[in-house]
Amino acid sequence: MRDILFLAHRVPFPPDRGDKIRAHHVLKHLAKHARVHLVAMADVEADLHHDAVLAEHCASHAVIWRSMGRAQAAATALLRRQPISIAAFAHPEYARAVQRTLAAHPIDTIFVYSGQMAQYVPAAFAGRIVMDFCDVDSAKFADYAEGASLPMAIMMRREDRLLARFEAQVAARADASLFVSEAEAALFRSRTGAARVQVIENGIDTGFFDPAAGFAGAGEAGPLIVFTGQMDYRPNVDAVIWFAREVMPLVRRSHPTARFAIVGRAPVPEVSRLASESVLVTGEVADVRGWLAAAAVVVAPLKIARGIQNKVLEAMAMARPVLASAAAAEGIDHAGTITVADTPAGYVSAIDALIAGPGDLGPAARRQVERRYGWPARLGPLDALLGLETRAAA
């Protein structure tokens, strides 16, 4: 049986945020065909205590605490003339864990999840390297620079430039560079000239996100408009602030009891301050499905969105009417089963229509997800890419 080293920037369990969801399902898929050796970082205390679950899927695993803060990462990156994203995930103990794993096991493939972790692939490694970029991280910083204050804009443009250079170097060495959508893959090719670029789309666990399972709901009176996501992530923060300030006051004119629920862990202070009679800020919840089940409309008003948005797939799987920005809808084959808007007036008009009568939109979205986005089908191309089909049949 083959041995694969899986390098991850976060522990791929539990699958409760976008980056961990994809890593979780990729790791489980690989573990069906090979011995997987995981080296991952943890940045929350709970992620140091998943040994039993990781042992179910991994032949070995090591979890390293990521201790470097943002300020230290920025200072280190400036001194070393490297991207902050790389400095933030640099850790000597992680490098030692990688070396120990390579020395102890006959690793023939290194699967790198997220670009920051490519710094740990040894220069002398002669086996197969698969780089799962997911999306074009450097381009995100170019987006951040637009409209930012001058000092921040300079830093974001620096990050874009240096990280894009790093990504191109990684892709030149990798046997394959993976992205979650053709739009992201095309953008990466245009920015780097990379040739060995493939698309492995995100999927959804339709058995877990199943409206037929029945949920008590969130128990809120009046139409409930729901946003889900990690609430210390800048694009999510900007999206909910914009929606709460620019859209909700207009919605309340025609729906006085409507409320906007911001559902997700680690809300930053500027999100917490949005809480009011019309805006709920839940913080971390035990199960996001209850909130989705209670939603009259699920919104994803992101201005910056790279790749396929799990929050949109989850709402579609729960058969909810989804209203998303063009950026959040990009890359998802929604086949007309979700509504797209980008202006306050567009959101208000769509919300009015969806609250009045969503028709078959929710059930149609569910059917589309079932047809198109089950994880086994989405990850199937990995078998041929890694030569797992032949090994599994042997």
Score class of each variant (00 low, 15 high):
Asp175Asn: 09
Asp175Ile: 04
Val180Asp: 06
Glu182Cys: 00
Ala183Pro: 07
Ala183Gly: 03
Glu184His: 01
Ala185Lys: 01
Phe188Tyr: 09
Phe188Asp: 01
Arg189Thr: 12
Arg189Lys: 12
Thr192Trp: 03
Thr192Leu: 02
Gly193Ile: 06
Ala194Leu: 12
Ala194Val: 07
Val197Ser: 06
Val197Tyr: 12
Gln198Leu: 15
Ile200Arg: 10
Glu201Gly: 13
Glu201Cys: 10
Gly203Cys: 12
Gly203Met: 14
Gly203Gln: 12
Ile204Tyr: 11
Ile204Ala: 15
Asp205Ser: 03
Thr206Cys: 13
Thr206Ala: 15
Gly207Cys: 07
Phe208Gly: 04
Asp210Val: 04
Asp210Thr: 02
Pro211Ala: 06
Ala213Asp: 06
Ala213His: 14
Ala213Thr: 12
Gly214Arg: 03
Gly214Phe: 11
Ala216Glu: 14
Ala216His: 12
Ala216Trp: 10
Ala216Lys: 11
Gly217Leu: 05
Gly217Pro: 06
Gly217Asp: 11
Ala218Phe: 03
Ala221Glu: 13
Gly222Val: 05
Gly222Ser: 06
Pro223Tyr: 03
Pro223Glu: 08
Leu224Asp: 04
Leu224Cys: 03
Leu224Phe: 08
Phe227Met: 11
Thr228Leu: 09
Thr228Ala: 02
Gln230Tyr: 03
Gln230Asp: 14
Met231Arg: 08
Tyr233Cys: 03
Arg234Trp: 13
Val237Ile: 15
Asp238Pro: 02
Ala239Ile: 00
Ile241Thr: 08
Ile241Val: 15
Trp242Leu: 06
Ala244Arg: 01
Arg245Ser: 09
Glu246Ser: 15
Glu246Cys: 13
Val247Trp: 08
Val247Ala: 13
Val251Glu: 07
Arg252Cys: 11
Arg252Lys: 12
Ser254Arg: 14
His255Cys: 02
His255Pro: 05
His255Gln: 05
Pro256Asn: 00
Pro256Trp: 01
Thr257Asn: 08
Thr257Ile: 06
Thr257Arg: 09
Arg259Cys: 06
Arg259Ser: 02
Val263Cys: 10
Val263Tyr: 14
Val263His: 11
Gly264Met: 05
Gly264Cys: 08
Glu270Trp: 01
Val271His: 00
Ser272Pro: 10
Ser276Glu: 07
Val279Met: 11
Leu280Val: 15
Val281Thr: 02
Val281Lys: 04
Val281Ala: 04
Val281His: 00
Thr282Cys: 06
Gly283Ser: 09
Glu284Ala: 15
Ala286Thr: 11
Ala286Lys: 09
Asp287Cys: 09
Asp287Thr: 03
